[in-house]
C-alpha cells in the first residue's frame, strides 16, 4: 500500500526529498486507512518511518565524516524509542532516539565529539522533515541518551538503585530501545541488560508496577469519558494518555516480570499470551484495544499536524466512540491486573 513512498525514500538525497516523502505518507494513508487493515498498515507505516530515519542517520554520518569532526567510534548504534521503538507510530511522531557507542578509553573524548556533531545534524534534519523535537528531550542531542557503553551502564545503575519516579520513567523509556542504524547488537545488548537487571530486583519491579497505574484512564464509573475541561483542547481526549500508554507500560512491565525479551508492544502481547502470563481473554481484548487506539491515532494524525495527540470526542463517530470506550475499559482492566500482581509481590 505504501510501497511507492518507500521506494522514493531509497533515493532521497536532501531534506526536501525526505519532507516530500513524509507528506506523501499522509496522502497515501488517507487512501488506505481502515480498521481491518490496521496491522498491515502499521507495519508499512513504521517501515516508512524507519526508512526515513535510516536515511537521515546515513546523511548525518556522511556529513560528520566529511567534516572530519572528532573520532568515529569503532562501534556505534543509533536506536529509536517511544512509538517508533514499539513499532506503532502515527504519521507525525515525535523524535525519540539515542546513540550508544564503544571505543577505547583514550579516544572517548573524540568519539563524544563525533557523536554529538552527528546527533545535532540528524536531529535538526528530522525536525525539518516533519518530526517535532521531543518535549521530554529524549533525543541523541541529550547526553542522557547518547553515551558510551560504559557511561550508559553507570547511568543505568543509578536509575536502578535510585528508584525515584523520574528514574522509573527513564527505565520505562529505555525499555523501548530498538536499534535502527549501525551496530545493532549494542542497543539490543543494552536493552537485554536492562530487562535482566530490573527482573532481578523485585522491589524495583514492584515500584515500576505501581507506576503502571498512572496516569489513570479517563473513564468515569458510569462509563463516561472524561474529556479535557479547560484549555485549547477542551472537550478533547489525549489519545496517548487515555489508555494507550497505560497498556504499553503494563505490557512492558509484564514482559520484564516474566523475562519476555520482545521489544514491540504487539510482540510483547503475543509472547505474554503464549507464555500464559496474560490470560487469553484479556490478551484478546488488549490486542483489539491496541488496534483501536492505533487506528484512531493514525486516522486523526492524517488530519491535523498540531495538537495531534488530542482528538475532540464529538468528532469521533458513534462506532469509534464505542470502540474507544471499550479499549479504555480494557486498559483499566489491565492496570488492575498489574496492580494485583504488584500486591502479591509485596506480600
Amino acid at each position: 500500500m505504501l510501497a511507492a513512498v518507500t521506494d522514493r525514500l531509497k533515493t532521497a538525497e536532501s531534506v526536501t526529498d525526505l519532507r516530500f516523502c513524509h507528506d506523501e505518507l499522509v496522502r497515501e494513508l488517507r487512501r488506505w486507512l481502515a480498521l481491518e487493515h490496521i496491522e498491515q498498515l502499521a507495519e508499512e507505516v513504521v517501515g516508512v518511518h524507519e526508512a526515513m530515519f535510516r536515511r537521515v542517520f546515513f546523511l548525518a554520518e556522511q556529513e560528520t565524516v566529511k567534516g572530519a569532526v572528532g573520532i568515529r567510534p569503532s562501534a556505534w548504534c543509533w536506536y529509536v524509542m517511544g512509538s517508533i521503538g514499539r513499532r506503532e507510530p502515527t504519521v507525525w511522531t515525535d523524535q525519540d532516539h539515542g546513540i550508544l557507542f564503544t571505543c577505547v578509553r583514550e579516544e572517548e573524548k573524540g568519539c563524544y565529539e563525533f557523536i554529538r556533531h552527528m546527533a545535532a545534524i540528524g536531529t535538526k534534519m528530522l525536525y525539518e522533515i516533519g518530526y517535532p523535537y521531543c518535549s521530554g528531550y529524549v533525543m541523541a542531542t541529550n547526553k542522557r541518551w547518547a553515551q558510551s557503553m560504559s557511561d550508559w551502564e553507570r547511568q543505568l545503575s543509578s536509575y536502578l538503585d535510585g528508584g525515584w519516579p523520574n528514574d522509573l520513567r527513564f527505565l520505562y523509556i529505555a525499555m523501548d530501545m530498538r536499534p535502527l542504524y549501525g551496530d545493532v547488537e549494542l542497543a539490543d545488548a543494552g536493552r537485554r541488560a536492562l530487562f535482566a537487571e530490573v527482573a532481578d530486583r523485585p522491589l524495583l519491579l514492584a515500584r515500576m508496577g505501581e507506576h503502571v497505574q498512572f496516569p489513570r484512564v479517563p473513564l468515569g464509573w458510569f462509563g463516561n469519558v472524561q474529556t479535557e475541561r479547560w484549555g485549547p483542547h477542551s472537550g478533547a481526549i489525549h489519545m496517548k494518555q487515555s489508555g494507550y500508554v497505560q497498556i504499553a507500560n503494563a505490557l512492558k512491565w509484564l514482559a520484564c516480570l516474566t523475562r519476555v525479551p520482545a521489544v514491540t508492544t504487539l510482540e510483547r502481547q503475543r509472547m505474554l499470551a503464549e507464555s500464559g502470563a496474560l490470560p487469553s481473554a484479556l490478551s484478546i481484548d488488549v490486542q483489539e484495544a491496541l488496534a483501536v487506539y492505533y487506528y484512531i491515532r493514525l486516522k486523526y494524525s492524517t488530519e491535523v499536524e498540531d495538537g495531534r495527540e488530542y482528538v475532540l470526542w464529538q468528532t469521533l463517530n458513534r462506532a469509534e466512540q464505542k470502540q474507544l470506550k471499550q479499549a479504555m475499559r480494557t486498559a483499566k482492566r489491565l492496570q488492575r491486573f498489574v496492580a494485583r500482581r504488584v500486591v502479591g509481590m509485596y506480600e
Binding site: 475541561r229 479547560w230 484549555g231 485549547p232 483542547h233 477542551s234 472537550g235
Partner: peptide
C-alpha cells in the same frame, strides 16, 4: 476563552 471558544481555567 480562546479564539476557538474553548474555555480556559
Amino acid at each position: 476563552f480562546n479564539k476557538d471558544k474553548t474555555p480556559n481555567v
